[in-house]
Simulated scan of single mutants.
Amino acid sequence: MHLSTREQHALARVFALLAEGHAPRPLRLALGEALLDLLQADHFASFVWDGERGVFQDGVWLNMDAANLAAYDAWFQHHDPITLKLQACRHATEVSEVMPYDALRRTAFFNDFLARDGLHWGINLHAFEGDHALGDLRIWRGRQRVGFDAHDKALLDLVEPAFVAALARQRADDTAARLSPRERAVALALRRGLTDKQIARELDLAVTSVRTYLVRLQQKTGAQRRAGIAAWASRLED
């Protein structure tokens, strides 16, 4: 893959941002500015999927109208024909890959939401850690521009691992801060491969109490199995 000098400098800025340890919301906003430069695009938005409520939330955006985004939060996201399809792809995907532009332009979502801010050609990247949605990147160009192509997708594919890692680190830090001392001790014991009975003996707990802590850890970390909790706990300091 050939990168121009401009793209090399823009990518360096992107990777520097992702390594700096920003909180997720400021990170997504700063990253949006860098990605508009990298992809020579015009508009940016980013949300986090709340699977329990079935909504996108915590939006940040650039070069879009706040009132239009409020309408997205309240109504348009529930009548959005493309974003859940883009999310299901789990990699950089052009909007035209999930819905032809001729069909999209006939929808109220396009005419009453996208077009109001001049959004025409789009590409998305949705970041996941396992089955947990961490955040997305929605990048658009105006109608008078050319659409995104395979090179643009490849650039976002280069960014994806570092984007996922940055959001996953912050998620782990936030979750770790919410653990009780006992939950933390159980998580660290799982990381060492101990059984429930071994954890109970080491921490002077009943086995039933250990299993209660495991349920709480599943709820807080999003891990479905004890192996997932152990993997998550690999980020914890002893």
Rank of each mutant, 00 (worst) to 15 (best):
Q198D: 04
T195Y: 05
R184L: 01
R191I: 15
A177K: 11
D157E: 11
F163R: 06
E183T: 12
D196F: 10
Q170P: 08
A162V: 00
D174M: 00
F163T: 01
A162W: 12
A187Q: 03
A189R: 12
A185Q: 09
A172N: 10
L188M: 04
R178G: 00
L190T: 03
L179Q: 06
T175R: 02
V164H: 04
G193C: 05
P161F: 03
A187L: 11
A168W: 06
A177G: 10
A189Q: 09
A168D: 07
F163Y: 02
F163N: 04
P181Y: 15
A168C: 03
L156F: 03
D157Y: 04
Q198Y: 06
A189C: 08
A168E: 11
D196N: 13
L167D: 01
D173I: 12
T195H: 10
R184V: 00
L179P: 02
A166S: 03
Q198K: 07
D157P: 11
R178N: 15
R192Q: 13
R182N: 12
P161H: 05
A185N: 00
L188I: 12
L194G: 02
S180T: 15
E160W: 02
E183V: 05
S180H: 15
R184F: 02
R171A: 11
S180I: 14
Q198N: 11
A187F: 05
Q170W: 06
P181S: 00
P181N: 07
D174K: 00
L194A: 02
L190K: 07
R178L: 02
E160H: 03
L190V: 03
L179D: 09
L179Y: 09
A166H: 04
S180L: 15
V164G: 06
A172S: 12
A176C: 09
R192A: 12
A200Y: 14
R171T: 09
L188N: 06
A168N: 08
V164N: 09
R178S: 15
A162T: 05
S180K: 15
A168S: 02
D173G: 13
R171V: 07
Q198E: 09
R171S: 10
E183W: 02
D173C: 10
A165I: 00
A165K: 07
A185M: 03
T195L: 07
V159W: 14
R182I: 11
V159A: 13
R169P: 08
L167Y: 05
T175K: 01
D173F: 08
P181G: 04
A166V: 04
E160M: 07
R171G: 08
A176I: 01
R178T: 15
R178M: 15
T195N: 04
R192V: 15
P161K: 07
D173N: 06
A162K: 05
A176D: 14
A189N: 10
